[in-house]
């Protein structure tokens, strides 16, 4: 059994040796090409350079630290599995990874297990949270921090659509405003958001 355990660690030793023999910075194109060739070291490089930024993205959606880390692990597994489906013509690698992260995070907060655990933890705060489905519930991290600079009606729309994953139709229903209005307001909010981050 000891010998077999050593086998488990083998890929890590492998990437360490690769690390010593390979240069430590890549252009995005090089990185994509190596990742799509399933190069171990390029994955380590990707993790080292982007795990923090992606955890920031996840943490803006998933409040619980432990859960956010679990989601980050899922995100990297998904990146590794789906790297072939990434098309550089449609966007940058980070954009693609950020969307993988956001989707995983939203899947998590919408999962039954997460909803149940949140219910349990939320019991003492129930009164203050009544009717707060549309309110930002998380500490302000990353993109979320930018939200605070938006107008109230814009902030609610970005929060619901981007951070909570509601579709435009769902938002229209919840806020009782026409679907067309939801779309134009979101576009308007996003334009404003752009000016805040560039």
């Amino acid at each position: 059994m000891r010998i077999l355990k050593r086998n488990i660690n083998y890929p890590i030793f492998c990437s360490l040796t690769n690390y010593l023999n390979t240069k430590t910075t890549y252009s995005e194109q090089e990185l994509i090409s190596l990742l799509q060739q399933r190069n171990d070291h390029s994955f380590g490089y990707l993790y080292d350079n982007y795990s923090g930024a992606l955890l920031g993205v996840v943490s803006a959606i998933v409040a619980d630290k432990e859960t956010a880390r679990d989601v980050l692990q899922e995100v990297f597994v998904n990146i590794w599995k789906k790297i072939e489906s990434y098309d550089p013509a449609k966007g940058r690698l980070f954009t693609w990874m950020m969307n993988v992260a956001r989707n995983a995070a939203i899947d998590k907060i919408r999962s039954k297990g997460y909803q149940d655990s949140k219910k349990n933890f939320a019991i003492p705060d129930t009164d203050s949270n009544v009717g707060s489905a549309t309110m930002p519930q998380l500490s302000d991290t990353g993109l979320k921090k930018v939200l605070t600079k938006l107008k109230e009606d814009h902030r609610v729309l970005i929060d619901m659509s981007y951070f909570q994953g509601y579709t435009h139709e769902e938002i229209a229903k919840i806020l009782e405003i026409p679907l067309g209005t939801v779309k134009t307001r979101i576009r308007s909010a996003l334009s404003h958001l752009r000016t805040l981050i560039t």
Binding site: I8, G44, L143
Partner: peptide, 27 residues
């Protein structure tokens, strides 16, 4: 995209160092 990436890197939340091994083992 670049603005968003820059903003995300500025607002990075560093995961615990033990997570890398877990992720590499998972893949």
């Amino acid at each position: 995209e670049l603005a968003l990436e820059r903003q995300a890197i500025q607002n990075a939340v560093e995961p615990p160092s033990s997570l890398k091994q877990k992720v590499i083992q998972a893949i």
